[in-house]
Design a binder for these strands. Structure first.
Lengths: 351, 351
DNA sequence: GTGAAAGCGCTAACAA
DNA sequence: TTGTTAGCGCTTTCAC
């Protein structure tokens, strides 16, 4: 299939009348090889079209210089951006990347991890699937001491690192903001409370209510996958309520937008009748009318920092051994929650 | 790093008192091995936690059972969906996947391809970057007879396969629809005309104008990267025109939406003053008000078919050797172009 | 139906 | 500073 034979270090060695090991060393700038020889080797190798055979090398070194990434989904702005951040860093350090998607399912996540493990990746970056309950599939990795860095949707586990934002605080801020705007009956659209991101946002929501003397009402908590359809479903639940809520805090922008569109179809005015806040600051938040108040999530940075941490772990070996890194977020206030007085102009609270 | 030694076929062989070659064959159900022996081998291998070492295997077989994917960007709904389709098929056939993104740059595309080539992928799926002009970096692949399947943004080249939709027809239909709605001065937001997708859509636009007796005016062609910013820029150009256009056909939804948002900010009524049609049927097209008329692009199918074709090529070897597959698209008419009479209800033209 | 043996291309310990 | 050599774990030809 692949046409003719590949050029190997033996070919280069023979052509230069030196040994293969010298070529091997010269190619990677081993200081024991005379500079002149190194140059000669590299020049000829290049000219002959030599390409290092990764398999032979990995087989021998028992390292692949490849990092595995497992994300819950690819077609989300947040994840795509985080991956771009990861890619940038791993590229810089000469690592390859294998990206796989668990499609929000625990079952598929197990397969992904085992496939990556089987591919002998040197380390793993992972954001958990929506419904992952059992973390047994990670034991495989822990037993082999394969470094794992969680990002965004993280798990508590012995010795692994996590990169997140303070979801509790962000949830608290978003809810407090709604309360400041005069909301008293605030719906919370949450994701699976097993996931840190959603449980923390929920806790922040509850605390903000409590701190403002509003009693938490479990009927106002709607848990779902937070996609377009479940957003529509939530809107329908809301429309059927005897007494309508005056605020909605959705744990992502997708569901916030879906709810808004649906409520608007039913003639409900946003923000006047219902104020809506989302989470993630996806581009769609600036398309919907009124523009969506949301929490800016540093997706790219999360990816970059997770990748950097993993590579540090891989190289510095044990040094630089933190447990959690928390990045900054920002509440971005836009029209979907601006109910105070007549001055209903667009404003980005921070920037 | 990886803890203790891995289990190899030698360990299994020794434990069973048979030879490694028998184990190797037994593991892959080689018919020459007695069924009983095969079962025994597989049972023990499993019990001992044996995992095939892909490097040794690839090194020996000179095939990696891995497919490389190069896409122009990851954070687009279209690409993410296409990749999901690719993943589904490759998984089914036991192929691994290495996904990389050229970030719309020719330079990065060259790197991606050479990295994948270097990783000795068995075949390549690729959608070209925005500004790729020179196809020299593919020679490397062609010389080694590495199968390549282009999808969406394809290239003419000896012996490669392509999976696309009929962009010319889609462009023709979208433009004709605008004309039917009474538009006479129609802006076309195009991407780089080097890319088949954009040049074809443009040709369709021109032909529709011609067929309706409208003279093509080069001033109405705006070429850009079709992202959010260039959409805003286009809106500003439009706003500065002495005589405003009454229709816009944008070659993607992102730019269509950006233009709409910006024109609306300036107080322009859509569709009454300007009708807007996009391309791709991204979710955002149903968020924007009025909902965006667009062309439904079968992203998932494109991915699935491209992957299937490549795998066929890889296995059937030379059989099933088409040059181009053209999938069906659909014009989806929504409110952003419905200017006829008072009946301005939402309709999905097909479905 | 099973085994022996060579070798894929590279690396690194050891020797010189 | 360079060379020799022994594998990494698997597959496959050839032999029995």
């Amino acid at each position: 299939m692949k046409g003719n034979r590949e050029v190997t270090i033996y070919d280069v060695a023979m052509a230069l009348n030196i040994s293969p090991s010298t070529v091997s060393r010269g190619l990677k700038d081993h200081p024991h090889i005379r500079l002149e020889t190194r140059e000669k080797i590299k020049a000829l190798a290049n000219e002959m079209g030599y390409q290092r055979n990764k398999f032979a090398s990995s087989l021998r070194k028992k390292r692949t210089e490849t990092i595995g990434v497992v994300v819950p989904k690819l077609n989300s702005y947040f994840m795509a951006t985080a991956i771009a951040g990861i890619e940038k860093i791993t590229n810089q350090h000469g690592y390859g990347l294998i990206i796989s998607s668990s499609q929000e399912s625990e079952k598929k996540e197990v397969t992904c991890i085992s496939t990556l493990f089987n591919s002998r990746v040197d380390g793993l970056l992972i954001s958990l699937a929506y419904d992952t309950r059992d973390l047994d599939h990670f034991n495989l990795l822990f037993n082999k001491e394969l470094p794992v860095v969680f990002f965004d949707r993280v798990a508590e586990c012995r010795g692994c690192m996590s990169v997140v934002i303070d979801n509790y605080k962000a949830g608290y801020e978003a809810t407090s903001h709604l309360i400041e705007q005069g909301c008293r009956k605030i719906i919370h659209l949450a994701g699976n409370l097993l996931r840190n991101v959603y449980s923390e946002r929920f806790k922040g929501y509850r605390q903000a209510l409590a701190d403002n003397g509003i009693k938490y009402n479990p009927d106002l908590l709607i848990v779902s996958e937070l996609n377009n359809q479940t957003g529509i479903d939530a809107a329908n639940i809301i429309l059927r309520m005897r007494k309508r809520p005056d605020g909605i805090f959705a744990a992502n922008d997708t569901s916030a937008v879906a709810v808004m569109v649906e409520l608007q179809k039913a003639g409900i005015k946003i923000p006047d009748e219902v104020a809506v806040a989302g989470f993630n600051n996806e581009p769609v938040s600036q398309v919907i009318k009124p523009n969506l108040t949301t929490v800016d999530y540093p997706a790219r940075e999360i990816g970059e920092i997770a990748a950097t941490s993993l590579i540090n772990k891989l190289t510095n070996n044990e040094k630089f051994d933190f447990s959690t890194i928390i990045l900054k977020h920002k509440l971005i206030v836009r029209d979907s929650t601006m109910r105070r007085s007549g001055i209903n102009i667009t404003m980005e609270s921070i920037r």
